[in-house]
């Protein structure tokens, strides 16, 4: 599953990251490396700081302390051109955040034209390619409001891909979707993973994490509790907090049974 090509250095590197909102310390010293082509799922209970960590990786949240590197560039350097770095980092949000006043195609072309200064025809070509990758070519002229949540999220992924990112960040991409729409979005993400995209995914989808991720990171209380292969972290967690979290997530009715080991996948 892991096809890491001669990584010169980690694609994403987080060193000693702290983040506080007022008196509330959300991240308490995070160290994390993600190699090129690696798919890392970040799991953990709500309030564990996993979304904040992800948002720190493209500096949507300003870290209180610590360093973030993407593709060798330090984002936490005060002199960095943050807009230039962000062009290399695609981000997908829980609430899709498509631009409602633009058609699907314009959602994909406007950022290319305004930010990358691509010409009209080139931007349109890239947009059409990425729309077809997510299977929504027929919705090119639709407005976001007329699409289902799953379709909106796939357009959002296509919009991020149109910028040609080296890294994709996913912030609970399926949490706002009706259960029957989750599959299409996960299929697109699986396709990206297979193509070798470097991905950091905050998610509650354990099946996706088990089957697609190279590594799973379990966070709780602002620290990384466990970090390893899906088999290690999801199937045979060593830490009591991980076990507790997984047992509640996989079988809410058995929440109190600490000894319960989640069933073996495949």
């Amino acid at each position: 599953m892991t096809e890491t090509p001669h990584a010169a250095g980690p694609e994403i590197e987080v060193r000693g990251l702290y983040k506080s909102f007022g008196d509330n310390e959300v991240l308490k010293g995070i160290d994390l490396e993600i190699r090129r082509g690696e798919v890392v799922c970040v799991i953990g209970p709500s309030g564990s700081g996993k979304s904040t960590l992800l948002r720190c990786v493209n500096l949507l949240e300003e870290p209180t302390k610590g360093q973030v590197f993407v593709g060798g560039t330090e984002l936490t350097d005060p002199d960095v051109d943050i807009d230039a770095v962000r062009r290399r980092i695609g981000m997908v949000f829980q609430q899709f955040n498509l631009f409602p006043h633009l058609t699907v195609t314009d959602n994909l072309t406007l950022p290319q034209r305004r930010v990358l200064r691509r010409g009209k025809t080139e931007a349109a070509k890239v947009a059409a390619e990425n729309l077809s990758r997510v299977g929504l070519s027929e919705k090119a002229d639709a407005y976001p409001a007329s699409l289902s949540g799953g379709q909106q999220q796939r357009v959002a992924i296509a919009r991020a891909l149109s910028m040609g990112p080296e890294v994709m960040l996913f912030d609970e991409p399926t949490s706002a979707l009706d259960p029957e729409l989750v599959g299409d979005v996960l299929a697109v993400m699986r396709m990206l993973a297979d193509e070798g995209m470097t991905m950091m995914v905050v998610t509650h989808e354990m099946t996706f994490a088990r089957e697609v991720a190279d590594r799973v990171v379990f966070m709780d209380g602002g620290v990384i509790v466990e970090d390893g292969t899906p088999a290690q972290v999801i199937t045979a967690p060593t830490n009591a907090r991980t076990r507790h979290f997984l047992s509640r997530l996989l079988d809410p009715a058995m929440a109190e049974v600490e000894e319960e080991t989640p069933e073996q996948p495949r």
Partner: peptide, 11 residues
């Protein structure tokens, strides 16, 4: 989220 999406795209 609109501003965040735009900023994340490099605007």
């Amino acid at each position: 989220g609109q501003l965040e999406a735009a900023r994340s795209l490099g605007f």
